[in-house]
Design a protein around this nucleic acid. Structure first.
Length: 172
DNA sequence: TAAGGGTTGACAC
DNA sequence: GTGTCAACCCTTA
């Protein structure tokens, strides 16, 4: 059976832009890009990876765009009902991502707490799985902090992690 | 199979 | 309070 063609859109915000990629009705990836320049080079990579090449489609992302615009205005938004394509992750990664989705808006947990929720003791593996998170913001890996109250890490950059937490009213 | 990683907790100073 | 180190265990090359 032929796979549905990939479609994408971008959402601009004060720190850069988000690239949303869908296959059919499933979201395949939500990626942070610092500038239009990064967008063009990433799209070039996608064109090499996928055939036929992904096409821009604003209409199919109406709901997601609305949700993200509200989120960037500082309104509490729940993204959990959006259908995500977890097939690209391992079983362990999917478990971590799904558990991370349960962290409420404006709340934070530590890597340890997240590990305990999935009955796991490999704290470093949690960080590693979050680092592979392809669904920025929707899987809120920015809400996971180190136990000493520090930020920990963030695949899209710590300054963005700080920005997102501040947006949600989290005091560090 | 070995190395690395978004961590943690214990211990020493 | 801060630094160091072993242990956790998954992913990647």
């Amino acid at each position: 059976m032929a796979r549905p063609r990939l479609i994408f859109t971008t959402i601009s915000f004060s720190q850069g832009l988000l690239l949303l990629i869908k296959s059919g009705s499933l979201i395949k990836e939500i990626k942070y890009l610092a500038s239009e320049k990064d967008l063009f080079s990433y799209l070039a990579q996608l064109e090499q990876k996928y055939s036929p090449k992904p096409i821009r489609d604003e209409i199919s992302f109406k709901e997601e765009k609305d949700l993200f615009h509200r989120y960037f205005k500082g309104q509490p938004v729940n993204f959990n009902h959006l259908p995500l394509d977890f097939s690209q992750g391992t079983l362990f990664q999917v478990k971590v991502w799904q558990e991370a989705q349960n962290i409420p808006y404006g709340r934070t947990v530590t890597y340890k707490e997240l590990a305990q929720r999935i009955n796991h003791s490999g704290y470093r593996s949690i960080g590693q799985a979050l680092g592979q998170n392809p669904f920025l913001i929707v899987v809120p890996c920015h809400r996971v902090l180190s136990s000493n109250g520090r930020l920990g890490g963030f695949s899209a950059g710590l300054s963005l992690k700080k920005y997102l937490l501040a947006l949600e009213g989290v005091r560090l």
